[in-house]
Amino acid sequence: MSKPIIATTSLAGCFGCHMSLLDIDERILELAELVEFNKSPINDIKKFTKKCDVGLIEGGVCNSENIHVLKDFRENCKILVSVGECAIMGGLPALRNNIPLRECLEEAYLDGPSVENNEERIIPNDEELPLILDKVYPCHEVVKIDIHLPGCPPSADMIYEALVSLITGKELKVPYEAFKYD
C-alpha cells in the first residue's frame, strides 16, 4: 500500500500553526515513515504533483490568491483540515473586518507612522498583485472543510494525534486540556 499523502499551506496566517506541526519533535521521523508530503512550504513543493489524502490549511482567506489556493486544495485533497483560529474564524487578520478596506490601505501605505519614501502617495495596485478581499473569511465559508482543529496555534500533540487518526482511521480523541481557542 502506498503511503498517505499530505499537503499543507499557509493562507492569511503567521506560520505559527506550521511551527506547531514541527513542534512534534522527533515524532516527525515517525510521521515521515507514515506519510509522504506533497505541496507544502515545508518541502517547498509549489504545485500539486498528485492527488493528496489530507490537506492542512493554516490561516483565513484575505485575498484572491488565498481563494485560488484553497480551491486548489479542495480539488486535490480528499480531507481538508482547518488548522488554527485564523483558518476557523479569520483570527487576528480578521480584526480589519470592521475597518473599510480603503482606510486599511491608506494607513498601511500613506498615513501610518512607519511610512517613508512614498511622496507620490501610491497604494500598490499592480494587476500582478492578488486582489485584497473586503473582509477576511473563515476557510469553511469559502470551501467545504471536513475537520477543524482549534487553537492559536493548535498544540503539536493535537496536530499529531489528528494526523495519526486520519491516517489510521482511528477515532480522534482530544483531551480537554488540548482543546483550546487560544
Binding site: G90, K135, E141, H148, F179
Partner: peptide, 19 residues
Amino acid sequence: IAYKYNIPAPRFPYQFPDR
C-alpha cells in the same frame, strides 16, 4: 461551555459586527 460541548467551529456564518 463551547469547550465542554466540543465546538470546533460554529455552524453559522460569522457576522463580524461593527462594535
